[in-house]
Simulated assay, not measured.
Amino acid sequence: MKKLPLIFGLLLIFACKGPTDETKSSNSSEDSLSTEDLLPESLMESKPVVLTLEEANNLAELPLACVNTEYPNKLGQTLENKNAMGEPHELHPAFYGCFDWHSSVHAHWSLVYLLKNFPDLQKAEAIQQALEKSLSAENIQGEVDYFNREESNSYERTYGWAWLLKLSEELKTWEDPKAKELADNLEPLTQLIVKRYKEFLPKLNYPIRVGEHTNTAFGLGFAWDYAHTVKDEVFEEAITKRAQEFYLKDDNCPVSWEPSGYDFLSPCLEEVDIMRRVLPKNAFSMWIDDFMPELKNEDFSMEVGEVSDRTDGKLVHLDGLNFSRAWVLYGLANQYPEQFGHLKSLANEHISHSFDNVAGDSYEGGHWLGTFAIYALQQAGKPKSEE
């Protein structure tokens, strides 16, 4: 924390400035230098997995199969009375499949992302029909009604909230008339989630630093992306302020303690992922020197997560960890290639280790791991839709 006063000083300097290229998320880093332009070949040991049309066709099978698969299902609800019970499709007319609500939401994100970037998908028509069926105005109103139930104020906080905003962001940035219609249908639920974030963040006195759903840094990162993309400056500022209050004083993150047995997120790296968004370049560089300085070392390494039983829904989380670590490392390398470009090789290694496990996996992993793989590959670089 020796550099903390300097960081605060830099934040004061940048406080009056709007978002700059340095504080944009990796989703907006298309113009940054590539790692290959900056690194010797000796440091590019692990070759990247590239999201081609062939791979997109394979990955599309997973969400397309599960969005209408109602059982098995983990509802995760609090019942205010016996009348609150119901079948999944009755409770969640839009997002009842894929085992649980958040997985259904990000399965729909996967379908939108793949169709948006690969319009020549073999099952493009089936995907379009599935999206139109799920994301109808009537179905989304049913979801809003569920969230407005007496006992649903904290439902899916904040993991499911984050994925809902990611789905909305993907639709709103797709220049397609049908996408605009779907985004408009989704908007009442989107705005409800934004409202829930704004109400919750001031009340959260301490961040949640775990490797699963409730990780605060993850929820803040996706929410920041949405706010930045749609230019909701009030929401973006609220997220930025809270992230800095939560994490600015952190140092010496014990990354050697990771992973825990059920992790699908890295507590240390997720914190890096939100702070690279909300800090100016110089302030972030000084912060990382205190928080996780080893990331700047060209020989930095982390062992991949190893899954011992792919039919165990908790143990298979570690494949998700490999993908989420990769997307953080890609985001950091793409935003600041001169300092962190070497991390792409490590990200490639993590994706390569788990990618072959996604297609044909048991339902325990198959209903969600595809999304994690797709998002990691999105952060790696532009998809090769022309192939």
Rank of each mutant, 00 (worst) to 15 (best):
E36N: 09
K116C: 03
N68H: 14
M85S: 13
A137F: 02
D319N: 15
K82Y: 03
L164F: 10
E151L: 03
E70M: 13
S29N: 15
G18Q: 13
K2I: 01
I288F: 06
M275C: 08
A217N: 06
P72D: 12
L59W: 08
E156G: 09
Y197T: 04
S260T: 04
S345E: 04
L321W: 13
G305P: 09
E181G: 13
S110P: 07
V272A: 11
G219R: 02
W287F: 13
L64M: 13
R276D: 12
L318P: 05
D263Q: 03
T158H: 06
C268A: 11
V112H: 05
D299A: 14
D309L: 08
P202T: 02
L164Y: 06
E181V: 07
M85I: 11
L164H: 11
C98G: 11
L189R: 02
Y363V: 11
F200A: 14
E349D: 08
Y113T: 03
N334C: 07
L4C: 03
N27D: 15
S110W: 08
E236M: 13
T23C: 11
D273E: 14
V255G: 01
D289E: 15
E90C: 00
N322A: 05
G320S: 09
A94W: 05
P188D: 02
K133M: 06
G211L: 05
T78L: 11
N139Y: 07
K231W: 02
Q379V: 05
V358L: 03
K384F: 01
N58Y: 02
